[in-house]
């Protein structure tokens, strides 16, 4: 993720909040939900699953501070899991985006399963980043990719498709394409590379 682009006042506010969280990690429980209001946000709302929003970046920085303040990975995992559990959709998305940076290894794979159970394109997309590419099991990962085709998440947002796509995923996508065609509906363009590579 690129560095947060904030105006100086917001950058200062964020730096202060980060210091607060490093010194007293439990403060993230009220700073994280309030981050868009207290620090900075991209105006308006956007359902775009790949949108680059300032409040996402601000929250990821707060999670970096949490990682600094909680060196014990089990304690850190518990705090991160609670932020997700009690978060709204925006907060959950930021947790998912930050997972590869938090040194949690496989401890919070259950959050990916939760996000992939939703039909929220912003959460599904955020769940299938580098953390999922490393830690999510094959069955869940394939279902996640198929879900992207269903709910309209572009596959360019899924980390590691080229490396992880296997014959079973190609079979699933081919069956999905057959079903779409049988119903007289178009097959998403994103599915085509996975179909072609199977046929070759």
């Amino acid at each position: 993720m690129r560095p947060t682009t904030l105006d100086p006042a917001a950058e200062q506010a964020l730096a202060e909040r980060c210091r607060e969280v490093v010194a007293d990690p439990a403060r993230i429980r009220v700073r994280f939900p309030a981050a868009a209001r207290e620090i900075a946000r991209t105006p308006g709302t956007s359902p775009a699953p790949g949108g680059d929003r300032i409040e996402d970046r601000v929250r990821v920085r707060l999670l970096d501070a949490l990682a600094q303040g909680l060196p014990d990975p089990d304690a850190r995992a518990a705090e991160v899991r609670d932020l997700y559990r009690y978060g709204d959709a925006d907060e959950r998305r930021a947790v998912l985006l930050a997972l590869p940076r938090l040194g949690l290894h496989g401890r919070v794979v259950d959050l990916l399963h939760d996000a992939l159970r939703t039909n929220d394109p912003r959460l599904v997309a955020a769940a299938l980043g580098p953390y999922a590419a490393t830690y999510l099991d094959d069955e869940a990962w394939r279902q996640g990719v198929l879900k992207c085709l269903f709910v309209g998440v572009p596959l360019r947002l899924v980390d590691g498709v080229d490396q992880r796509a296997d014959d079973e995923l190609r079979r699933m996508v081919a069956d999905y394409a057959d079903e779409r065609r049988a119903a007289g509906r178009p097959v998403p363009d994103d599915a085509l590379p996975l179909l072609t590579s199977r046929e070759t």
Partner: peptide, 10 residues
């Protein structure tokens, strides 16, 4: 004990 998390939200 959980209310503060919600009272902080937009």
């Amino acid at each position: 004990d959980l209310l503060p998390r919600y009272l902080a939200k937009d």
